[in-house]
């Protein structure tokens, strides 16, 4: 059975690229992918992670002052 996935959405491409840059530097999980058609978001890129990684990622993102829009569970 495949693992549950979560995406982090952004308001702008600049937010998405800032997120990727900091996450890579911090060794945080995830990668940028095109926005899945089943969700609606402002930016065409989202950050894809496994659901089990969500808590750690979002805690650290908050500490680092990273901006995003929403966190959405993929079904």
């Amino acid at each position: 059975m495949s693992e549950n996935k979560v995406v982090v959405t952004f308001r702008t491409t600049t937010e998405a690229m800032a997120w990727e840059r900091v996450c890579k530097n911090e060794g945080l999980p995830g990668r940028l992918i095109p926005m899945p058609v089943q969700i609606s978001a402002e930016c065409g890129l989202v950050w894809l992670i496994h659901a089990r990684e969500q808590e750690r990622l979002m805690e650290r993102a908050t500490e680092l002052g990273l901006k995003c829009d929403k966190v959405i569970q993929l079904v």
Partner: peptide
């Protein structure tokens, strides 16, 4: 092209633009 897709070449352009802004 920056901000116009999620494939490698588009992301490379977006990274370049963001690095420059930063």
């Amino acid at each position: 092209n920056s901000g116009r897709g999620g494939h490698h070449l588009s992301l490379e352009a977006s990274r370049l633009v963001f690095d420059a802004r930063w």
